[in-house]
Design a binder for these strands. Structure first.
Length: 418
RNA sequence: GCGUCGGUGGUAGAGUGGUCAAUUACAACAGACUGUAAAUCUGUCGCCUCCGGGCUACGUUGGUUCAAAUCCAACCCGGCGCA
């Protein structure tokens, strides 16, 4: 990182024989103890929770989204507040995603039920559908189309057309005012073939340099850290190439990335392996954020293979749909077996929900569509995930990472395939 | 008592001779969810099945018809009106 920058990443402990490390990311709004889970608040709100609740659950960082805040209320209005953190009353460190994920979710993934993490089986059985062609006529088509210069989006709100380029993403993220921001990239589909992944990755690299250049024009005092996003899909050689190019990327004025995001698609099976390849190449002294990953097992794979921070919508989205994490695996509180249970979600959980309410009450709130259901469930899941990542961090400090990992995975996943 | 309208699957409520085991919604029972188009979406939802089909069903009983939830008759139950 730039020596003038308020940003600083310090490694305080490593796990020998692996890429795992314990560290601290210093930002203008506080220190992030890593490894750390980043709570997602896409529209400058963590759904169903107040910022005070989010902080009480152990969250250190909140991530919002460029695309959503650009569409509403508009980055100019956010800038009037002094940035999205001030607008939402979050005083700690923050991130914004670049809009790169929406290139995927509103583009290639649109209406196909494809997620960024796929099973090998899903990839093998995937049949590209005809609608890609029909989409050109509008109608049911995708909401994002890519060209060399950028991406054209149709608003999911009203269908209006908007244009994002790397420069535009930097300008919007500057207005949104997060501490850490991401280069504008293309998140590719796990279904995309090698040739496309390569082509998209090369383009993402060109966009990365444009992002880096524009960001440094806007942020002369270096108050925002910019993270370059590694792509390459599920192909090892592409991942290695992407890591190397971004690690060395330098503008004409000598600016480099302050850290890295690892984005794009994975297979469940190869996540750990891919991260190992990438993080062995990325410079050790800069933080690495794994974008959009957050099932319990993923944190072990991510940390062991050198990732420092993680963000994911899963804990909160699953919570709002009745899915609750327990050390014995995930339960669906809407299932009939919980209807009369006077037990908490977990008897030894320290969260507000578990200390105060029965499974039966939560079941009732979900069945009657009460808003508090989403709140209490989100409180539990975010507490659970934050504590899990914190426990992983402590296990690195205490040098019992492997024991902790084995016990947790055994309890959580039991005989299910990992 | 007379007249009139109506009685459909857990509920509401479509259907008025065959394409009806019966639209739809809700409820119920499951499942999915990984940089949030997500308080969303998907499946099942009479009984049995060797998944070909078989059986029992639209207040009750009887009838007309090749064929009835649908038409006719009687009865039972309910709403309303008049006595």
């Amino acid at each position: 990182m730039n020596t003038m920058s308020p940003f600083n990443f310090k490694i305080t402990k490593k796990l020998p024989g692996t890429l795992a490390r314990v560290g601290e990311i210093h930002t203008p709004h506080g220190v992030i103890q890593t490894p750390s889970f980043v709570t997602v608040g896409t529209k400058a709100t963590v759904k169903a929770l107040t910022p005070e609740q989010v902080a009480d659950l152990g969250a250190q960082v909140v991530l919002a989204n460029t695309y959503h805040l650009y569409l509403e209320p508009g980055d100019a209005i956010v800038a009037k507040h002094g940035g999205f953190p001030k607008m939402m009353n979050w005083t700690g460190p923050t991130m914004t995603d670049s809009g790169g994920f929406q290139v995927f979710s509103l583009g290639a993934a649109m209406g196909k039920g494809v997620t960024k993490v796929a099973t090998e089986e899903a990839i093998e059985n995937y049949i590209p559908e005809a609608p890609d062609v029909a989409d050109e006529n509008g109608g049911l088509g995708k909401l994002a189309t890519i060209d060399e210069d950028g991406v054209t989006f149709k608003s999911y709100k009203d269908g209006s057309v908007h244009r994002f380029t790397p420069e535009r993403s930097m300008e919007i993220q500057w207005n949104l005012g997060a501490d850490m921001i991401f280069a504008f990239d293309e998140c590719t589909s796990p279904m995309a073939p090698y040739e496309y992944q390569k082509q998209a990755m090369d383009r993402t690299h060109r966009w990365a340099l444009r992002s880096l250049t524009r960001h440094n024009e806007l942020d002369s005092e270096k108050v925002q850290a910019l993270l370059g996003v590694v792509q390459g899909g599920r192909f090892e050689d592409l991942r290695a190439e992407s890591a190397k190019i971004l690690a060395e990327m330098t503008t004409e004025k000598g600016d480099m990335f302050d850290g890295f995001g690892i984005g794009g698609s994975f297979t469940k099976k190869d996540l750990g392996n891919t991260l190992q390849i990438v993080n062995a190449i990325l410079p050790e002294n800069k933080p690495r954020h794994l974008l959009g990953i957050g099932e319990p097992i993923d944190f072990f794979l991510g940390v062991e293979n050198g990732c420092d921070t993680f963000d994911c919508v899963a804990p909160t989205r699953i919570a709002r749909n009745g899915g609750l994490h327990t050390k014995q695996g995930k339960i669906n509180i809407k299932n009939s077996e919980h209807r009369e249970s006077l037990d908490p979600i977990e008897s030894d959980c320290g969260c507000y929900t578990c200390k105060s309410y029965t499974r039966s009450y939560l079941s009732h709130l979900f069945r009657s569509d009460e808003m508090l259901a989403g709140t209490l469930a989100s409180i539990h899941n975010l507490y659970f995930i934050n504590k899990l990542v914190e426990d992983i961090r402590q296990s690195l400090i205490n040098e019992n990472f492997y024991e902790f990992k084995e016990q947790f995975l055994k309890d959580y996943y039991k005989e299910k395939t990992l």
